[in-house]
């Protein structure tokens, strides 16, 4: 019984189809017609799908694999700062030591890929007037403190920036603009406050290196209540007209600048 007999197998397959045909004939007429229609529709759809779906769709995931090749084929405009050094090593050297060491060449000179392809045909220029530098260096109160800023309308309005500043090696500011050049927002707050005539150096001592490497060499800050009390304690002499408190009893658990903002004390 368990032996495989091809004849029985064939006849049982034949029997299966015969029964299927009998079944089909017993179907209501409506169902037959609808089945034929359905078969036609399904066949048409499957054919259309085979023809219309891109061959490499779904190769790596539910997308067209060659789409990635098309995206990667997009031409490059910005060549990247490394390639500039190959020819302009002198400029690169100057720049490497200065404040602009992390500013890519193409930030000012624009996309350079075409120039690297054909040095003669495509020449790059940097802005020679006053349109370029203020994009970064115009005074905006929202800019982080410590970033060098000017008000271009009043900062030598008719001179081009490169007349005074070498863009590849800009110099730290000279007096009288020492602190306010970079700490513009603080300077402006202080200017309208009662501390307007208190010099920055009265409270902060800045090491010389601060100008060259501002984040590594920080200016000092007062270290205790006694510093402010020098003027604001009611025992302080020769300071008439200044708001004064009793240093010993006035909120003794805090240092002054935990509540008062020294650059813009609340009594404006």
């Amino acid at each position: 019984m368990n032996e495989f007999d091809p004849n029985t197998a064939l006849s049982s397959i034949g029997g299966f189809f015969r029964r299927l045909r009998e079944r089909w004939q017993r179907f209501p007429e409506q169902v037959k017609r609808l089945t034929v229609l359905l078969a036609v529709v399904v066949f048409a759809l499957v054919t259309a799908r085979t023809m219309l779906v891109p061959a490499d769709f779904g190769k790596y995931g539910h997308y067209r694999a060659s789409a990635v090749d098309e995206i990667v084929a997009q031409p490059i405009q910005y060549a990247g700062h490394e390639i500039c050094t190959e020819c302009h090593d002198d400029v690169a050297e100057t720049k490497a030591a200065g404040f602009h060491k992390n500013v890519g060449c193409e930030v000012c000179h624009g996309p350079a890929a075409a120039h690297t392809e054909d040095v003669e045909a495509v020449q790059l220029l940097a802005p020679r007037g006053r349109e370029g530098c203020p994009l970064c260096h115009e005074y905006l109160p929202s800019r982080p403190t410590g970033f060098p800023q000017i008000v271009s309308a009043s900062h030598n309005p008719v001179k081009p920036c490169i007349g005074c500043h070498e863009a590849h090696d800009p110099k730290p500011p000279e007096t009288p603009k020492e602190c306010s050049a970079c700490h513009a927002t603080i300077a402006r707050s202080k200017a309208i406050s009662h501390h307007a005539y208190v010099a920055c150096t009265r409270c902060h001592e800045a090491p010389d290196q601060h100008k060259l490497d501002p984040r590594s060499f920080r200016p000092s800050k007062p270290d205790g209540r006694e510093f402010c009390a020098g003027c604001h304690d009611d025992g302080a002499s020769g300071k008439e007209g200044i708001p004064q408190i009793d240093q010993a009893s006035h909120e003794e658990r805090y240092v002054c600048w935990q509540c008062h903002y020294p650059h813009l004390p609340e009594a404006q």
Binding site: P28, E29, Q30, R33, L34, L37
Partner: peptide, 18 residues
């Protein structure tokens, strides 16, 4: 009607059931 022609009692009953 998909060229259908069966209006026998049985066919109509099937229609209604369907």
């Amino acid at each position: 009607s998909l060229f259908s022609s069966d209006v026998s009692e049985r066919a109509l009953r099937f229609d209604q059931k369907a």
